[in-house]
C-alpha cells in the first residue's frame, strides 16, 4: 500500500537543451538543501536528476521537469517528475535493467536512478510519451 502524498510546493523547468540539464541539477540541489537532506542524499538526488533529465532530452526529445516538496504527513521529501512527448518506452522492465541502452552509453540511466531514489514509477505509452516520477524521502 502506498501512502497518499501531498505536494507542499512545486517548480517547473524546461528540459530542451544540454544546458537545461545543468540548470536542472542546480535547482534540485537548492531544493535538497532547503529540505536539509544529508550530503549523501543530496548527491544521490542531484545525480538521479542529471540522469533522468538527460534521458528526457535524449530519448524523449525534450520535455520538462517538475520539482516538488512532498509530504505523507510524517516524512518530507523531494519529488522529481520528468515528462516528455517522445516515442515512449516499449519494454519498461528491459529499460530498467543495467546495461540496457537505446543509444550509445552504459545504460545505467534508468536502473541507476531508480537505485538512487526511494520511490520510482514510470508511466509510458508508445508513440505518446513518458512520465517518470521519482521521490527521495528525508
Amino acid at each position: 500500500m502506498r501512502k497518499p502524498t501531498w505536494i507542499v510546493k512545486t517548480e517547473k523547468l524546461p528540459i530542451k537543451d544540454p544546458n537545461d540539464v545543468v540548470i536542472a541539477r542546480q535547482r534540485v540541489r537548492v531544493w535538497a538543501l532547503d529540505l536539509k537532506l544529508s550530503l549523501v542524499d543530496q548527491t544521490k538526488i542531484v545525480t538521479a536528476a542529471s540522469e533522468l533529465a538527460r534521458n528526457t532530452l535524449e530519448h524523449g526529445g525534450g520535455g520538462e521537469m517538475e520539482i516538488s516538496e512532498v509530504t505523507d504527513g510524517i516524512r518530507r521529501g523531494v519529488r522529481l517528475a520528468f515528462s516528455d512527448h517522445g516515442p515512449g518506452i516499449p519494454d519498461i522492465k528491459l529499460a530498467l535493467s543495467d546495461g540496457y541502452t537505446s543509444k550509445q552509453g552504459m545504460g545505467l540511466g534508468l536502473g541507476g536512478s531508480k537505485r538512487l531514489m526511494n520511490d520510482f514509477t514510470i508511466e509510458t505509452e508508445v508513440g505518446k510519451g513518458t512520465l517518470i516520477t521519482a521521490t527521495r524521502w528525508k
Binding site: K44, T47, R115
Partner: peptide
C-alpha cells in the same frame, strides 16, 4: 573524489 560522490557512483552501478 568526494565520499558522497563515490557512494552515489557505486549505487548508480559504476
Amino acid at each position: 573524489m568526494q565520499p558522497a560522490v563515490a557512494i552515489t557512483l557505486v549505487e548508480l552501478g559504476m
